[in-house]
Simulated assay, not measured.
Amino acid sequence: MTFNDNARVGGNTAKRRGAGVAVAGGGVAGLGALAVLLFSLFTGTDISGVVGPLTGGGGSGQESEVANCETGSDANARDDCRLAAASLNLDQYWSENIEGYRQPQLIIVDGQTSTACGTASNATGPFYCPPEETVYVDPTFFALLRERFDATAGPLAQLYVLAHEYGHHIQHLSGVMDRYPDNGSGPDSNGVRTELQADCLAGAWVAHAGEQTDENGVAFLQRPTPEQVRDAINAAQSVGDDHIQRESGAPVNPESWTHGSSEQRERWFETGYQGGYQACDTFSVSGSRL
C-alpha cells in the first residue's frame, strides 16, 4: 500500500524507544528457520531463550520522536515512518467507527525496551500491551525478512501487522478481552478466536484505508491494489499455526494452536475486508465454522 507523496504525516504521536540497533551489515544471530522468525514476528512470543537475540544491543527507556517523518514520501521510503504514518490513518478510521475510541501509543522499538507486558524486542515481534494501551513494533523484522529470507514483507503486509495489533486495542476498548479470557490453546480456544478477530478487524481497515485524509484533505494512502491485498493475505497465511508447524518440521497439532490455521487467518482477513468490522464476531460462530 502506497502513501500519497504529498500527504502530511508529521502529526503522528509515535515514539522511538530502545538501543538504536541496525540490521543492515549483520548482527543477526542464532536463527535457524524462517518459521521460527515468523512465529516471533506475528505472535509476540519471546523466543530469545531458545535462539538468542536477533541483533545486539541493550535496552533503553528513553523516548524520542520518529525523526524526518513528515510526508507520505518519507513513509514510502522507511519502515519506521510508514508505521508511524499509518497510525494516523488507523486512529482516524477507528475514531469514526468506534464510540469512545482513544488512540493507543505506538512505540517503534530499537533493540529492546521494558514494558508492563515484558520486554519488547526483536525476539518478541510486534505486540499489544493492554495495561499500557500501547503497540510495540520493531521494524527490523521486516528488513530481516527481505534481506535474509527472500520474503517480500511489502508495505501492505507490514501495515496488516500493525492493523492486527490495533485490532487487539479495539478488543481491549470494547471489553472483548475481559469477556473472553484466555482458556488455553486449541482450534476452538478463545485465544484463536481473539487472533482471528484481530485479523478480521485488520481486513476491515485495509478495505477503507484509502479514505482517511490529512488536515489539507489529501488522502494518506492510495487504495490498495489487488496485488498488495494478495501480499497481505499471503502474510496472514504464512503465520497460520499449521504452516508454522510444518515449516519447523513438527507435526500439525491443532490442540496446540493459539492463532488459527492459514486458511482461517486468510478467511477472516477477507471477511473483514469484504464485510467490514461488523462481520468480525468470531466468538458467536461454532467451532466447525470458525
Score class of each variant (00 low, 15 high):
4 N>P: 10
4 N>W: 09
6 N>R: 13
9 V>A: 05
9 V>G: 06
10 G>D: 09
15 K>P: 06
16 R>H: 10
19 A>Y: 05
19 A>Q: 09
22 A>C: 03
22 A>M: 11
28 V>C: 10
29 A>N: 13
29 A>K: 13
29 A>V: 12
29 A>Q: 13
36 V>P: 04
38 L>C: 00
38 L>K: 03
39 F>C: 08
40 S>M: 14
40 S>L: 04
43 T>C: 04
45 T>W: 08
46 D>E: 04
46 D>W: 00
48 S>H: 02
48 S>D: 04
49 G>W: 00
50 V>A: 12
52 G>L: 05
52 G>A: 08
53 P>S: 14
54 L>V: 11
57 G>K: 05
62 Q>T: 15
63 E>K: 14
63 E>W: 07
70 E>W: 11
71 T>M: 05
71 T>I: 08
72 G>R: 03
75 A>R: 06
75 A>G: 10
76 N>G: 06
76 N>K: 09
80 D>Q: 10
80 D>Y: 01
80 D>N: 11
84 A>E: 04
84 A>T: 08
85 A>I: 09
85 A>N: 09
85 A>T: 12
86 A>W: 06
90 L>R: 00
91 D>P: 05
94 W>H: 01
97 N>F: 00
99 E>V: 14
102 R>L: 08
103 Q>K: 15
105 Q>H: 08
105 Q>D: 12
106 L>N: 02
108 I>L: 11
111 G>R: 04
115 T>G: 09
115 T>F: 03
116 A>C: 07
121 S>N: 05
122 N>V: 15
126 P>A: 15
126 P>D: 07
127 F>S: 05
128 Y>S: 05
131 P>S: 12
132 E>K: 08
132 E>N: 10
132 E>W: 03
133 E>H: 14
133 E>L: 10
135 V>P: 04
138 D>S: 15
139 P>L: 04
142 F>G: 03
144 L>Q: 14
146 R>F: 01
150 D>Q: 14
152 T>W: 05
154 G>E: 06
156 L>P: 10
158 Q>T: 13
164 H>N: 03
166 Y>N: 00
167 G>F: 00
169 H>K: 10
170 I>R: 12
171 Q>Y: 02
171 Q>V: 06
173 L>P: 07
174 S>I: 11
176 V>C: 02
183 N>V: 09
185 S>N: 14
185 S>G: 13
191 G>F: 00
192 V>D: 07
192 V>W: 03
193 R>V: 10
194 T>I: 12
194 T>M: 12
195 E>V: 02
195 E>R: 01
198 A>R: 03
201 L>F: 07
209 A>T: 14
211 E>A: 12
212 Q>Y: 02
214 D>C: 09
217 G>F: 07
217 G>A: 12
218 V>N: 14
220 F>G: 11
221 L>D: 11
223 R>E: 15
225 T>G: 11
228 Q>H: 13
231 D>I: 12
237 Q>F: 11
237 Q>S: 14
238 S>I: 07
239 V>P: 02
245 Q>A: 08
246 R>A: 12
248 S>H: 08
251 P>Y: 02
253 N>V: 15
256 S>V: 11
256 S>H: 10
257 W>P: 04
260 G>E: 00
262 S>A: 13
263 E>G: 14
265 R>V: 04
266 E>L: 01
269 F>S: 03
270 E>G: 06
271 T>F: 01
271 T>W: 01
272 G>K: 02
273 Y>R: 11
275 G>T: 00
276 G>K: 01
285 V>E: 12
